[in-house]
Design a protein around this nucleic acid. Structure first.
Length: 574
RNA sequence: AGGGGCGUCGCCAAGUGGUAAGGCAUCGGGUUUUGGUCCCGACAUCCGCAGGUUCGAGUCCUGCCGCCCCUGCCA
C-alpha cells in the first residue's frame, strides 16, 4: 500500500510554464539574472529551531526552495540559532524532517548561524574599531527609555562617546564572561533620532550565560538576529534573502550591517506577505498553548496546522505544494479560505487514493431471498481514475451493512437512496429493494429486510432498468471493525481570537468526533500507517500511527464534495 | 513627532498607459455503478474614493479614506 510518509520525488516545475504569471520576486530575480548581476540565484530558509514547522513555514519553504529549484540555483537550510534560551535540537530534527517531507532538499547546504559565531565576533570588533559600535552599560529598562517613542526621537546613551579602545576592552571581557547577564550590550552607533526605531543604535550582542545546543558553553555573549542574519547571508553568498513583511522596517539595518561590516558580498532582502488561513492559527505561542493545555493531543494532532499534524491527517505534500503555488506570492496581507487547501488535497487524492468501502454508521440489511450461509465474491474497481490500480474481490453475503443515512423511511423528493419499496444498487454487487423496516421498542430503525435481484449481479440488469442511488456496503460476516476520527475546524470562528482576544477561547471542543463501530473491508486489516484511502462516498482517510495488530484507526483527511448535503441543507432536511 | 507597507469579483491573484487572465467558491446544464471525478456554460462596463494629465488610466499626478507592521538585551 502506498505510504507517502517517505520522501517523495522532487516537485515538478510547474512554474516554468511561461503562461503562468510570475510574481514580483521572480520578476526581480529574472531581471538580475538577465542583467548578469548574478549568475545563479542563492536563497535560504532560516528557521529558528524553537517550534514545529506549520503551514506558514511551508510557504516560506516553498518560496525559497521553489525559486532556487526553478532558476536553478540553490537554497540553504540555515538554522537561526542565536537565542540559546529558546532553542532545542528536537526542533532542528523536526524541521529537517518536515522540509524533506514537503519534497525539498538542501543537499550539502546545511548551516547554523552558530557556525559563524567566531566570524561574527571578529566582524563586531571591526565595527568597534571603526567607531561604528560601542559597549553600553545602560540597563534594559534605560535603553528602552532612551530609545524614545514612535513619534519622539531617542537620546544618546551617556556611553555612546566611549572610545573604541575602551569598548573593545569591555567587549572582550563580555566574551570572557566577566560580566553578569544584562549588565552590558554591544550597540551599533547609527542614529538615535532616526524615524526608524530599528536604526536607533540597535543592540548587536547581549550577555547570556546560557548553554547553547551546538556551541555548548563556549560563549557568554550571543549576537542578535538583526546583526546575525545579514552577515550570515553575506557569508553564504545569498543573493536574495526572502522574508516576511514585518522585516521591511529592518531592511535599512540589514543594509547597514552588510555595508559596514567587513564582508564582500551584498545580499538583497525582499519581503513578502505571510500566509494566513481561515479557521487556523500560525502563531508558535498559540500552537504551544494548544499542546500544553491539552486542547489537542500533541504537535502532530491531525487538527494542528503543523506539517506533522497535516501529515498525520493524511495531507499529501504535493497537494500542499500545489496550494502554495496557487495562492501566489505578493505583498498584500491576505487570508486564504481553508477550503482552498482542501481543494488541492482532494485533487491529488482523487487521482491517487485506492477506493475502498467503509460503513461509518452501520445499518443492518438482511437480504431475505439470498441463500443462508452463501458467500460469493464480486469484483470491485480500485480506482476509476487509474486503470492500472486494477480490481479486487469483495465478499458478499446475506447480511450486509449500509450507511444509516442512505435510508429514509419517509424520504423527501430529492432523496435518491433507499426507502420502503424503493430499489438501489449496492455498488459492484446487486440491486436490492427494501421490503420491510424493523424497529426496536423506541421506534428506531434497527434493520432492513430487503430482497435482491439475482439478475443484477455486478450492478446492472438485463432489462436495463435504472436505479437512482448507489450505496457502498460491507458484508457483515466478513467486515472488520475500525475506529474513525472525524475532524472539523479546530476553531469555531474564521479568525480565532479576533473578537475574544484569545484564540484559545475560540477552540471548538467538538472538533473531534470519534466513531467506534465502523465496519470496513477486511482487506484493510494490513494497511500501513500513513496510507490514504477513499472511503467511497465519504472522503479520504489516513491510517493513524496508533493503529496496530487488531486495531485499525483512521483519520479523516478531507471529505468528498457533497452535493446532496448542500441540497439537503437548502431544503431544510438536515 | 513619526516611519514602513498594502488596497483589482465572496476568497486568493494576474495586470508594468491601449480598452479587466486564472484558480477556489457560487449558480445553471450534461456524463456517471461514488449525489465523487470529468465536461459545458454563467459569474468585475469595473479596479478604496475624489479630482487631474492623456486620443486613451486599474496602470501616471494630486488629495483624501481604510487596513497592516514598528517603541524585545525575541526571531
Amino acid at each position: 500500500m502506498d505510504d507517502h510518509t517517505s520522501a517523495p520525488e522532487a516537485p515538478r516545475d510547474s512554474s516554468l510554464d511561461p503562461a503562468k504569471p510570475k510574481d514580483f520576486i521572480r520578476d526581480i530575480i529574472e531581471a538580475d539574472l538577465r542583467s548578469s548581476k548574478h549568475q545563479q540565484v542563492v536563497t535560504r530558509f532560516p528557521p529558528e529551531p524553537n517550534g514545529y514547522p506549520h503551514i506558514g513555514h511551508a510557504k516560506a519553504v516553498s518560496v525559497n526552495f521553489g525559486i532556487a529549484q526553478e532558476y536553478p540555483g540553490r537554497c540553504h537550510l540555515r538554522f537561526d540559532d542565536t537565542n540559546p534560551v529558546k532553542e532545542e535540537t528536537e526542533y532542528v530534527e523536526a524541521i529537517e524532517r518536515d522540509i524533506k517531507w514537503l519534497g525539498y532538499d538542501w543537499g550539502e547546504h546545511l548551516y547554523f548561524a552558530s557556525d559563524y559565531f567566531e566570524q561574527l565576533y571578529q566582524l563586531a570588533e571591526g565595527l568597534i574599531e571603526k567607531g561604528l559600535a560601542y559597549v553600553d552599560d545602560l540597563t534594559a529598562e534605560e535603553i528602552r527609555e532612551y530609545r524614545g517613542t514612535l513619534k519622539e526621537p531617542g537620546k544618546n546613551s551617556p556611553h555612546r562617546g566611549r572610545s573604541p579602545e575602551e569598548s573593545l576592552d569591555l567587549f572582550r571581557r563580555m566574551r570572557a564572561g566577566e560580566f553578569p547577564e544584562g549588565s552590558r550590550v554591544l550597540r551599533a552607533k547609527i542614529d538615535m533620532a532616526s524615524p526608524n526605531i530599528n536604526m536607533r543604535d540597535p543592540v548587536l550582542y547581549r550577555i547570556l550565560h546560557t548553554h547553547h545546543h551546538r556551541t555548548s558553553d563556549d560563549w557568554n555573549i550571543y549576537p542578535m538576529y538583526d546583526y546575525t542574519h545579514p552577515l550570515s547571508d553575506a557569508i553564504e553568498g545569498i543573493t536574495h534573502s526572502l522574508c516576511s513583511l514585518e522585516f521591511e522596517d529592518h531592511r535599512p539595518l540589514y543594509d547597514w550591517v552588510v555595508e559596514h561590516a567587513a564582508v564582500p558580498h551584498r545580499p538583497r532582502q525582499i519581503e513578502f506577505a505571510r500566509l494566513n488561513l481561515t479557521y487556523t492559527v500560525t502563531s508558535k505561542r498559540t500552537l504551544r498553548q494548544l499542546v500544553e493545555q491539552g486542547k489537542v493531543n500533541g504537535w502532530d494532532d491531525p487538527r494542528m496546522p503543523t506539517l506533522s499534524g497535516m501529515r498525520r491527517r493524511g495531507y499529501h505534500p504535493e497537494g500542499i505544494r500545489n496550494f502554495l503555488g496557487a495562492i501566489g506570492l505578493a505583498k498584500a496581507n491576505s487570508e486564504v479560505e481553508y477550503g482552498y487547501l482542501e481543494h488541492f488535497q482532494r485533487e491529488v487524492w482523487n487521482r491517487e487514493a485506492p477506493r475502498v468501502m467503509a460503513v461509518l454508521d452501520p445499518l443492518k440489511v438482511t437480504i431475505t431471498n439470498y441463500p443462508e450461509g452463501q458467500t460469493e465474491e464480486v469484483e470491485a474497481i480500485n480506482n476509476p481514475e487509474d486503470e492500472s490500480a486494477g480490481t479486487r474481490m469483495m465478499p458478499f453475503s446475506r447480511v450486509v451493512y449500509i450507511e444509516r443515512e442512505d435510508f429514509m423511511e419517509d424520504p423527501p423528493k430529492k432523496f435518491f437512496r433507499l426507502a420502503p419499496g424503493r430499489e438501489i444498487r449496492l455498488k459492484h454487487a446487486y440491486f436490492i429493494r427494501c421490503d420491510e423496516v424493523v424497529k426496536d421498542a423506541e421506534g428506531n430503525v434497527v434493520e432492513l429486510l430487503c430482497s435482491y435481484d439475482p439478475e443484477s449481479r455486478g450492478g446492472s440488469t438485463p432489462d436495463g432498468r435504472k436505479v437512482k442511488g448507489t450505496s457502498h456496503w460491507v458484508s457483515a460476516e466478513h467486515a472488520i471493525d475500525a475506529e474513525v476520527r472525524l475532524y472539523g475546524h479546530l476553531f469555531t470562528v474564521p479568525r480565532p481570537g479576533a473578537t475574544t482576544g484569545s484564540a484559545i477561547d475560540d477552540v471548538d471542543p467538538e472538533s473531534l468526533t470519534l466513531l467506534n463501530g465502523v465496519k470496513v473491508e477486511a482487506g484493510l486489516a494490513d494497511a500501513s500507517v500513513g496510507a490514504v484511502f477513499q472511503f467511497l462516498r465519504q472522503g479520504y482517510f489516513a491510517v493513524d500511527p496508533e493503529s496496530g495488530p487488531g486495531k485499525l484507526v483512521f483519520n479523516r483527511t478531507v471529505t468528498l464534495k457533497d452535493t446532496w448535503a448542500k441540497v439537503a441543507t437548502k431544503e431544510g432536511m438536515q
